Amino acid sequence: MDRPARAFWIRAPGHGEIRPVPVPQAGAGEVLVRALYSGVSRGTETLVFRGGVPEGQREAMRAPFQEGDFPGPVKYGYLSVGCVEEGPPDLLGRTVFCLHPHQTRYVVPAGAVTVVPDAVPPRRAVLAGTVETAVNALWDAAPLVGDRISVVGAGMVGCCVAALLARFPGVRVELVDTDPSRAAVARALGVGFATPEEAAAGRDLVVHASATEAGLVRSLELLAPEGEVIELSWYGDRRVGLQLGGFFHSRRLVVRSSQVGAVSPARRARRTHADRLALALDLLSDPVFDALITGECAFEELPGVMPLLAGGELPALCQLITYAPATTGDRARTDRPGGSSVVQHHRP
């Protein structure tokens, strides 16, 4: 028998709502997960919320458990942490991560969840998908001991890349962003910080994650001769212009794409998607990643919070979504209007 649950849907670009959805019992080889937390991947999810997925990329941009189609109505998201309530004995009661949209309960194949290590708090585990993106980027970039590296764009992805690079021996990392307040995040991650105007030049490698044309242009300017930009930004339907005259050819610069949808060619023969995600969760045992969870709201407030995130009124890096306890979660209202009663808790 199907049981009631609730899910966040984008009804149309710029408009979200919580809908009741039926959830079946878990069958053979499946698990029923009760959500504890989910996270808003601010760059990609707000782009989807605004309706910015290009028509030619709508199939490639589908999330693993997405329902509906772009630009909407669509159920989209991929940072969910929950507790297994039904399923195989080895998973029953375990805290797991799943690439699932924002939903109170859901049934997925058992192979679609990854157990969260005991050393990783469930709240922090929502960052697993973003850390996985950073891992793939660094497999693509292959930084060397002693490299001078800039990360342009101090959003979720850029900060995760910087946090991992801070562990490389002898590497000098500078996080670059137009928002001076991100200097506090950089300090928490153990890396340097600069605004674009003050950023150090002569870099061996630049990882670009600002999703702006100006950021990509500045990334090229910061490179030493024969340096490389690893491009992580997703621009959606926006056009990006670059001036490739001048120093681009004389310095023999490189711009290379990195995208998490496929395992980096550098590790594809020896690592699976599951291996990469398990590694990301292991890396999250470091409490330094808590600095990236800077906003928090209840699931019921998400329809009001998403427009604020998309419009920039809420400056959160990772917006944490909390779910009601099992005893009350399914009795909460599904028609609550968003916006007027949103309670935000921010850390600097």
Results as ranks from 00 to 15, higher is better:
residue 300 E to M: 04
residue 277 L to T: 15
residue 290 D to L: 04
residue 303 P to S: 14
residue 270 R to K: 08
residue 269 A to F: 05
residue 296 E to H: 01
residue 277 L to Q: 11
residue 296 E to G: 05
residue 280 A to H: 10
residue 280 A to E: 06
residue 270 R to F: 12
residue 291 A to H: 08
residue 295 G to Q: 09
residue 269 A to M: 06
residue 285 S to K: 11
residue 292 L to I: 05
residue 298 A to V: 10
residue 278 A to F: 04
residue 272 T to L: 07
residue 271 R to D: 12
residue 302 L to D: 08
residue 288 V to E: 02
residue 290 D to F: 01
residue 270 R to Q: 13
residue 275 D to A: 10
residue 276 R to M: 14
residue 313 E to G: 10
residue 298 A to H: 01
residue 313 E to I: 13
residue 298 A to M: 05
residue 311 G to A: 10
residue 295 G to D: 10
residue 266 A to D: 06
residue 288 V to M: 07
residue 267 R to A: 13
residue 273 H to N: 08
residue 270 R to E: 15
residue 304 G to D: 03
residue 294 T to N: 00
residue 271 R to S: 15
residue 266 A to Y: 10
residue 303 P to G: 11
residue 282 D to K: 14
residue 308 L to E: 10
residue 274 A to T: 08
residue 280 A to F: 06
residue 315 P to E: 11
residue 308 L to G: 09
residue 278 A to D: 07
residue 313 E to W: 15
residue 297 C to G: 04
residue 283 L to K: 02
residue 305 V to I: 02
residue 293 I to H: 03
residue 308 L to K: 14
residue 268 R to W: 13
residue 288 V to I: 13
residue 304 G to V: 03
residue 277 L to W: 10
residue 313 E to S: 15
residue 304 G to E: 04
residue 288 V to W: 00
residue 266 A to E: 13
residue 279 L to C: 09
residue 292 L to V: 11
residue 281 L to A: 09
residue 289 F to P: 00
residue 314 L to W: 04
residue 283 L to M: 15
residue 305 V to A: 06
residue 269 A to H: 14
residue 307 P to Y: 02
residue 280 A to V: 09
residue 305 V to E: 01
residue 310 A to E: 09
residue 297 C to F: 02
residue 293 I to A: 00
residue 305 V to W: 01
residue 278 A to I: 07
residue 308 L to I: 06
residue 276 R to K: 14
residue 280 A to R: 05
residue 281 L to W: 09
residue 284 L to H: 09
residue 291 A to K: 00
residue 291 A to G: 05
residue 277 L to V: 11
residue 298 A to S: 08
residue 285 S to H: 02
residue 280 A to N: 11
residue 285 S to G: 15
residue 283 L to Y: 06
residue 274 A to G: 15
residue 279 L to Y: 11
residue 300 E to I: 03
residue 311 G to M: 13
residue 280 A to I: 14
residue 301 E to V: 07
residue 316 A to W: 01
residue 306 M to D: 04
residue 270 R to N: 12
residue 281 L to S: 09
residue 290 D to G: 04
residue 300 E to D: 13
residue 313 E to T: 10
residue 273 H to V: 12
residue 286 D to N: 08
residue 315 P to T: 13
residue 283 L to A: 01
residue 310 A to Y: 05
residue 277 L to A: 12
residue 294 T to D: 00
residue 312 G to M: 11
residue 285 S to L: 06
residue 292 L to R: 06
residue 296 E to L: 07
residue 287 P to H: 09
residue 295 G to R: 02
residue 291 A to T: 05
residue 303 P to I: 10
residue 282 D to I: 03
residue 269 A to N: 11
residue 266 A to G: 00
residue 279 L to G: 02
residue 288 V to R: 08
residue 300 E to K: 04
residue 309 L to S: 05
residue 286 D to K: 04
residue 310 A to N: 10
residue 289 F to L: 01
residue 313 E to H: 15
residue 301 E to L: 01
residue 269 A to T: 14
residue 283 L to N: 03
residue 302 L to S: 03
residue 273 H to L: 14
residue 309 L to V: 15
residue 272 T to S: 15
residue 316 A to L: 00
residue 271 R to H: 14
residue 284 L to R: 02
residue 309 L to C: 12
residue 304 G to K: 06
residue 306 M to G: 00
residue 292 L to G: 07
residue 306 M to E: 06
residue 291 A to P: 01
